[in-house]
Computed example of a mutant assay.
Amino acid sequence: MMPATSGAIAALDAGSAPASDAVGAIGGILDRPPALAESILRSGTRLTQRWGHGAFHASLPGMDSHVIMTYYGAAQDSSWRQGSRRMSARTRPGSITLIPEGQDGRWDVEGPIEVSHVYLSDARLQSAAEALAQKGRAELIGRICFEDPACSRILELLSQEAARGDTASSLFVEQAIDLLCTQLLRAHSSEGAAEPPVIRKGLADWQVRRVTAYMQEFIDNEIRLDELAGLVSLSRFHFCTAFRLATGQTPHEWLTALRISEARRLLAQPDMPVTNIALAVGYQTPSAFASSFRRLTGMTPSAFRRGL
């Protein structure tokens, strides 16, 4: 999990650059902007309908609100990096990503992906903390694809209400935002979280890069765990544990994601048969390739090619 920001870096400290508008900052790195609901909620909080967008690989500045999102449909690789700190995971229904106000970093998220967002003002969060009689300022902990079915379900309900706009819907949305704040404070704040934020240990960045480069170089071959562990002088057991701690994925999951990424690139070449692509990325049969491709992208290789 990502470390808690200190009061959005103490409101970004006096004299530092002002926080960026969250909706504008996120919209600026996506191929489709957030599908915002028209209404602006109490304390300036905004929410979106459920919508889809493509992959993005870009840095986000510190933003002026807390951004909470949940996921629908096929899982995708997602990673965040800030200096030497990094987190990687896979998007999946029932999980949330939480970017606290003021937290910057580099994001790499594969697509296509389906999401809904809430842009929660810090004033609204602090008001909820006061109502819960929490002492001091509430500080949220950064999360990436973190399992929280309660938060995820609230976000899903909010996305369904985003397009309505009638009086009953407005009342429901305001109460649901209060409920979301309560869950965030209970499970994702420095005071309320059951466990304090920890720094994950595992392979060093250079070791992950070495393993990844080896996988890419021999992507059309069968790659064994012993080979990968030997690259960083670890036993198979310790390598698997360290790799997962460093990346949030098993070596097999990481290799599969690399193979499917390369397959996407090759599918853009219309004259290359799908069978040849399967062999080129390490699958012995077209059926095994199609199954793996569909599991990660939600579509068959042929359907993906037709959509290009």
Rank of each mutant, 00 (worst) to 15 (best):
G62D: 05
G62S: 10
G62E: 01
G62M: 02
D64Q: 07
D64K: 11
D64L: 08
D64M: 03
S65E: 05
S65N: 02
H66F: 12
V67G: 04
V67D: 04
I68R: 01
M69Q: 10
T70I: 06
T70G: 06
Y71N: 01
Y71Q: 08
Y71R: 04
Y71P: 04
Y71C: 05
Y72M: 11
A74C: 12
A74Y: 04
A75S: 15
A75W: 02
D77E: 09
D77V: 12
D77T: 14
S78Y: 10
S79T: 03
S79N: 10
S79H: 02
W80F: 12
R81K: 15
R81W: 03
R81F: 08
Q82Y: 10
Q82T: 02
Q82S: 13
G83E: 09
G83S: 09
S84C: 10
S84P: 06
R85L: 14
R86G: 03
R86Y: 04
R86D: 01
M87A: 15
S88A: 14
A89V: 12
A89T: 08
R90N: 11
R90H: 07
R90Q: 13
P93W: 05
P93Q: 13
P93L: 08
G94E: 09
G94L: 11
I96T: 05
I96V: 15
T97Q: 03
T97H: 06
L98T: 03
L98W: 11
P100E: 09
P100R: 06
P100I: 08
E101V: 11
E101L: 13
G102C: 05
Q103S: 15
Q103V: 10
D104E: 12
D104H: 11
D104I: 00
G105M: 08
G105C: 09
G105Q: 02
G105E: 09
R106D: 15
W107P: 02
V109T: 06
E110W: 01
E110A: 15
I113S: 05
I113G: 00
E114Q: 14
E114W: 04
E114P: 00
E114M: 10
V115C: 06
V115R: 08
S116G: 00
H117E: 13
Y119C: 01
Y119H: 11
Y119M: 03
Y119Q: 02
S121A: 13
D122L: 00
D122T: 06
D122H: 06
D122C: 00
A123D: 13
R124A: 09
Q126T: 11
Q126K: 09
Q126D: 11
Q126N: 02
S127T: 12
S127Y: 06
A128I: 05
A129M: 07
E130C: 10
E130G: 07
E130H: 06
A131H: 08
A131D: 12
A131K: 13
A133G: 07
A133Q: 13
Q134L: 14
G136Q: 10
G136D: 04
G136T: 07
G136V: 10
R137I: 05
R137W: 06
A138F: 03
A138Y: 06
A138P: 14
E139I: 00
L140Q: 02
L140V: 01
I141Y: 01
I141H: 02
I141R: 00
G142I: 08
R143H: 06
I144N: 02
C145A: 15
C145N: 14
E147C: 04
E147L: 14
E147M: 09
E147I: 12
D148M: 09
D148E: 10
P149I: 09
P149L: 11
P149Y: 13
A150K: 08
A150I: 13
A150W: 08
A150R: 07
C151L: 15
